[in-house]
Structures are given as C-alpha cells and as structure tokens.
C-alpha cells in the first residue's frame, strides 16, 4: 500500500548505497560506509547530500569557491548534492530538482521507487551512472527523527 507523504517527512541518514548492473554484479559507488543526509521537509522541499568521507581531503585555502582544479576535482568526485521539491506519486517519490552540484540535474524530475519498512526507507532508481558504476541504484536510509 502506498505510504502517506507524512510518513516520509523528516531527516534520514544513508546506510547503504548499491548499484546493480545488468549482469547482477553489485558495486558500492561511495564505498561500504557512505555518508548521506536526506531531508523531506514538511513544506514540500527536499535536500540530499551523499559523499564518500574518506576520499575528501581538505583545501589549502579557506575559500569554498576558490579551490584549485585538483582540489575541486577531488571534492566533486566524492560528493553529490541536490535540492528541490518532493511529491508522492503512487509507489514513487519524485524529486523535482531546482539546484544541484551537478549542473545537468537542474530542472529534472528524479523518480525513486520507495519501500518503507518501519524506520527504514529503500529508494530504488532507474538505471544511472554514479562514480563509474552503472545500473539500478538502491539506497537504504534510516530515519534520524
């Protein structure tokens, strides 16, 4: 039975992120301990950030917009973030993206099939490529609040 949207409202932490390719091979694009926060706000906005903490390093300077090409590349290759509005559509939750670190995502509607299981939610994606791994992604999130 489809969930009510109230059941998604809150803050969620990423527990597991796997991508399964067409041969059935499973990869973890951000490693076995990915870091992520997903917010479904009561006002209809959503935010998501996912990262591979151990691959991030630090910039030599203190200007977030002033990193060197090498620093910027390392930061972008280990972190993914986007924000926008969210809505439930049957068994799917749709993220209408307004802003994203990856410019290509802006203006897209990201469809996720969701499965709620108590304090856990699993989001399944259409085929995509993330950090070199291609296939259907499954992201398991645990409710924080």
């Amino acid at each position: 039975m489809p969930a009510k949207s109230e059941q998604l409202i809150g803050s969620w932490r990423l527990q597991k992120w796997i991508i399964t390719d067409e041969t059935g091979a499973v990869k973890e694009p951000m490693g076995p301990k990915p870091w992520g926060l997903l917010i479904y706000a009561a006002d209809g906005y959503m935010s998501a950030m996912l990262a591979m903490p151990e691959a991030r390093g630090r910039f030599a300077g203190n200007d977030p917009l002033g990193g060197s090409p090498e620093e910027a590349h390392r930061a972008m290759a280990s972190c993914h973030a986007y924000v926008g509005r969210w809505r439930i559509d049957g068994e799917r939750v749709v993220h209408d993206v307004e802003m994203a670190l990856w410019p290509n995502m802006v203006g897209t509607s990201q469809v996720r099939y969701y499965r709620l299981d108590g304090h856990r939610i699993v989001l399944k994606t259409p085929p995509m490529t993330r950090k070199g791994a291609s296939g259907v992604a499954e992201l398991t999130w645990t409710r924080v609040t």
């Binding site: 694009p29 910027a72 972008m76 290759a77 280990s78 490529t129």
Partner: peptide
C-alpha cells in the same frame, strides 16, 4: 552522465560556482 565523473575543467567550474 556521471555527477562524480566530471573532467578537471568541468568540476573546477562546478565547484567555483556552487
């Protein structure tokens, strides 16, 4: 089509503007 697979030039631009 990989958000974490940009070239050095693409990622530098993306990071300098967000």
């Amino acid at each position: 089509f990989d958000p974490m697979g940009g070239t050095a030039e693409e990622t530098h631009h993306a990071m300098s503007t967000a």
